[in-house]
Design a protein around this nucleic acid. Structure first.
Lengths: 195, 195
DNA sequence: GGGCTGACAGATATTGAAATCTGTCAGCTG
DNA sequence: CAGCTGACAGATTTCAATATCTGTCAGCCC
């Protein structure tokens, strides 16, 4: 519509794609829509992204990266490792719950996108478990935690708390009692990490 | 087709429905199909089940009950509570993995059914966590486990191991390394239950 | 010439008319 | 008369014709 006279860049295409996805949803968002929103022909979009799938994956990756960025601050924090672990898990839960609760439709859109995405989700999970591993390593050094393999423990902790961050459980995050369930699982897991 | 001369009973309808679901899948299985398989008119089916949804829910309930039945034997076993807990979790994982791996289409069918089912799934989960609570109570008595609320701990253990029994993870149960991941989570959880 | 356009072929999605299904019930049948 | 049938109304699903989209590319424009 508004033929913005700026140069067409991958970044601008990604922004427009996010907007189109927000408006139309994952099923009806077409690259023609994206091109129209940018005031260019759809051929130009294909100059920056080989396929529609690649474009969607790039949008997904951006979204996922924003989420891990929100958490990375906690890893370096100065508090005791056990408190940091609890904080990190609580922050992950809170972030996911907020995203799912504030705009359920957009969240559903990204659930569809992450299902399509090839490597992006795997990389995101690796990213998060690596953050977890750093915290656990710190705990091993201070003697709070005991484990022979912090990476493996990090994966176990991540998987054990899946109910509170895996999107497939999103609809249960608003039910009464989840807070308590979250506390109970975190308690179990933290105790399991101790000597 | 073959007009079995026996009396039409809810049980026979449920069996025929399972067969029709196995053959046609959840989307294309109609109550007309079920009636045809039994050699009766579809009106007769409605004499035993008020709606198609009620019929499907009854089939789902039967299937779920068969699964919990398989596990209940372990709860009463004579071994040490910790070993019993490990056995029970391993048996749950093995049972789910077998069902999903042997006949993926049928498993997918039941995933659709359980999504529709109203209370049946919740009751099934309550059933399983109650079994878990019995084992944990036994462990508290022998001093192996420490917890103020075995029911709550049972729910936490069940949720923490969700990745290895929740159908939404079924596709990951065949990937290499799951065994190890399962062991790691069970280890974490069992340690968390200790004093 | 680097970046963009727009027409094109094949694949995918939409649409609306026709077919099938669900749930009911008056009446048949043994 | 208890249990079953089959025709019916409204809801849902199928199917095929039609429209739109994806991905390519020769050529245009700045």
């Amino acid at each position: 519509m508004a033929p913005t006279s700026e140069i067409l860049t991958a970044e601008r295409i990604l922004e427009a794609t996010e907007e189109v996805l927000r408006r139309h949803g994952p099923a009806k968002a077409t690259v023609v829509d994206v091109a129209r929103a940018l005031g260019v022909s759809h051929g130009s979009v294909y100059r920056h992204f080989r396929t529609k799938a690649a474009l969607r994956e790039a949008v997904t990756k951006r979204w996922l990266d924003r989420t891990s960025g929100e958490l990375s601050g906690i890893v370096a924090g100065g508090s005791a490792p056990e408190a940091r672990l609890r904080d990190w898990l609580a922050a992950l839960f809170a972030a996911k719950r907020r995203k799912a609760g504030d705009d359920p439709e957009l969240f559903a859109t990204y659930m569809v996108l992450t299902d399509e995405a090839g490597t992006a989700v795997g990389e995101h999970i690796t990213d998060l478990t690596t953050q977890l591993a750093r915290i656990i390593e710190a705990g091993v050094e201070t003697g709070s935690f005991t484990t022979t393999d912090p990476e493996a423990s990090a994966r176990a902790v991540f998987q054990a708390t899946g109910r509170f961050h895996d999107p497939c459980y999103a609809r249960e995050w608003e039910q009464p009692g989840v807070e308590g369930e979250f506390e109970a699982v975190v308690e179990l897991v933290v105790r399991g990490l101790h000597a």
